[in-house]
Computed example of a mutant assay.
Amino acid sequence: MTTLLSAELAWYVTGRFYATSTTVADYGYFLHLAGIDAELFNGAKSETTAHFTFAAQPFALKKGVTNGALSLGLDPVGEFSIYLQRTPGGNFDDPASFAQGERIATLRRVSVVVGTTVDTGTTPILASNVFSARFVDATPFEFQGRRYDLRELLGAGVTQFGTAAETPIAPPSPTYAAVLPFSGSALALRP
């Protein structure tokens, strides 16, 4: 198992933010997970074939700050977990499907997350965010004949930079007010 250096690329993810009238949560899957020396998908790359998924605990929406064409969202500290799905089954029409399988790690954001949206006057054109998260726990696991431990691979946690589309996707049910796709890239936090 190769241990990452500080600030070395830890992962790429893609997922969706699911917003109700009072909360937001994000769910998705890993496109790349550094140190895992095996195929992360069971077939063509998609949420339905991903072995490694993530799910966040819903958090309350907070009033943001406006600075000219910038709208800054201030999301509270919260947790998300990483799952190993030996039989992949993620489905964006069923966000809870990303929290299936073996929970192999839980991380907690260490401070407020600032999300930035740039508004051109007609429609928002870009949304981004950045946060750091540290391990709350991690459980060693076996995958494709090898043993792994995400805490050993990544150290204390990650800093992730994300980009979200501002064009919503049709919600899978009336439970959700809005659904936005996003991608994220994370760097390892090593002591």
Rank of each mutant, 00 (worst) to 15 (best):
T116G: 11
A10W: 02
Q57K: 06
L187G: 01
S97K: 01
E152W: 12
A25P: 03
E166P: 06
F135R: 03
Q100R: 13
Q85E: 06
F143W: 04
L40A: 12
Y176V: 13
E166A: 14
R134H: 11
S97A: 04
L180S: 10
N91G: 10
F131Y: 15
D149M: 01
S71D: 11
S183D: 10
T20H: 09
A7R: 11
T66K: 13
K62F: 05
L40D: 12
V13G: 00
V136Q: 03
S173R: 12
G64Q: 12
L4V: 07
F135T: 00
T163M: 12
T3C: 11
Y176R: 09
G28C: 02
F59R: 08
A7T: 14
V118Y: 07
L70P: 09
P171E: 13
L70M: 13
L187M: 03
Y176S: 08
L84D: 02
T3Y: 14
I169S: 15
A170P: 10
F131V: 03
S46W: 04
G90M: 06
V130K: 10
V112A: 07
S173T: 15
F17G: 10
L61N: 07
A170E: 15
I169E: 15
L70F: 14
A44Y: 08
A133V: 04
V136A: 03
L84Q: 05
A156D: 12
S6I: 09
G162R: 07
R16T: 09
A50K: 06
A60K: 02
P95H: 04
F17L: 08
T22G: 06
E142A: 09
F143K: 08
Y29H: 07
L9H: 06
V130G: 08
Y29D: 02
K63M: 09
